[in-house]
Simulated assay, not measured.
Amino acid sequence: MDLRQLPALNALKTFEAAARHESFSRAGDELFVTHGAVSHQMRALERELGVALFARDGKRVRLTDAGRRYAKDVRAALMVLADATREVRLGHRERRLVVSSVSALSARWITPRIGRFIERHPEIDLELVSTNALADFARDDVDVAIRFGSGRYADLHSELLLEEVYFPVCSPNLNGGQLPRTPAELAHLNLLRSDDGLWRTWFDAAGVPDVVEPRRGVLYQDSSNLLQAAIDGQGVALVRRSIAMEAIETGGLVRLFAIDGPSPWSYYFVCPPPLLASPRVQAFRDWLWEEVEAFRARYAGA
């Protein structure tokens, strides 16, 4: 049979609901259309087929013998279509991996390395969501999150991924290349501000409690923008090790002093417990741990 001669799919879906309920009103409620719209579609379908599918008695309807036979076959055909559609959607979702990460880590740490994951797992369709908003696994379409925090996340699988430290960095050309030799000299330079308020902690660790934390100038809420400001020579920035090491190794930044400031937060690998065993999540987790170990080894030798 020429498929172009089949009734419209929407008409068949409406017929299936009307036949199952033997009521145009209940079919309309299910399909979010009016009783009149269902009745009109069924009249048109009967004219197209040349056979009565419903016997009408006022507002009540019942299937004719032909309608009952047709309803059985239409329902079976629609179920086949529904099963095929579900399998296609499930197959696509099984290949898709959505990873949410804080913006700075995504830009400065994950993105330079992610090519190795893609080469290893071309069968996975990876989506990187860069956001500083906390992913809501119940609402957002996210499989894995890399969170910067305390690691206490109710009802979620959480693993410590990478500890963090802070240290000051600047462009090698800052102040005409005359860089500070002691932490106390930072008091005479432009110190870039961020919203984490950790300069005070670093000054205490460096033994210069009298140096004042910066309170004027641009306030950078995104660590990647803060790092870029330092690369551009705008001042000295207190930055996280994870996002600064690439720029230090390539010469865009210079680390000042071998003094680490402790971070109250670390990076955590987080996902809903049922997703942890899925092949795509395990593949990403294994790759991520390899990259973290390589990063730790490289930093230890820096």
Rank of each mutant, 00 (worst) to 15 (best):
L162S: 02
V98D: 06
R120L: 14
Q234Y: 10
A302Y: 07
R93H: 15
D286G: 01
S150H: 05
A154S: 12
L156C: 05
L191P: 00
H92G: 02
R68V: 02
G36H: 08
W109H: 06
L12M: 11
A135C: 10
H188Q: 13
A247K: 01
C271A: 15
L81R: 07
V281F: 04
T34W: 06
E293S: 08
A283Y: 05
H92S: 11
I124N: 08
I259P: 06
T182Q: 09
M1T: 12
S266T: 08
V33D: 03
L12E: 03
R285Y: 10
A277C: 11
G50W: 09
R181D: 14
V129Q: 08
G235T: 04
L126A: 09
L275R: 15
A37Q: 13
F148A: 02
A8M: 06
W289S: 03
A55Q: 14
P172R: 06
R285Q: 11
H157F: 09
G251C: 10
A104I: 07
Q5A: 13
E291L: 07
L128V: 13
A133L: 09
V211C: 01
A82N: 13
K59S: 14
L276A: 12
A138R: 13
P180Y: 00
A55I: 08
I146T: 03
F148R: 01
V169T: 12
R113K: 13
A44D: 12
V254L: 10
E163W: 08
D136K: 13
G50S: 08
K72Q: 12
F137A: 09
A107H: 09
V51G: 05
A37R: 10
R96Y: 12
E127G: 03
V33M: 14
H92L: 11
A37T: 15
L191N: 00
V254E: 09
N10C: 03
H21N: 10
E16N: 12
E291W: 00
V51H: 05
T14K: 06
E213K: 05
W202L: 06
R285A: 06
I124D: 13
Y267A: 10
D83E: 15
D155T: 11
P262T: 14
V236K: 00
A11G: 11
A294W: 07
V169I: 08
S39I: 02
R298W: 00
D57F: 13
G207I: 11
A247R: 00
W265P: 01
L128H: 07
A184M: 09
S39W: 03
D140A: 00
A138K: 10
L174A: 07
L179F: 08
D2H: 11
L162I: 00
F269P: 01
V88L: 11
E30Q: 14
L6M: 14
P214Q: 06
S266M: 05
Y220M: 07
R139D: 10
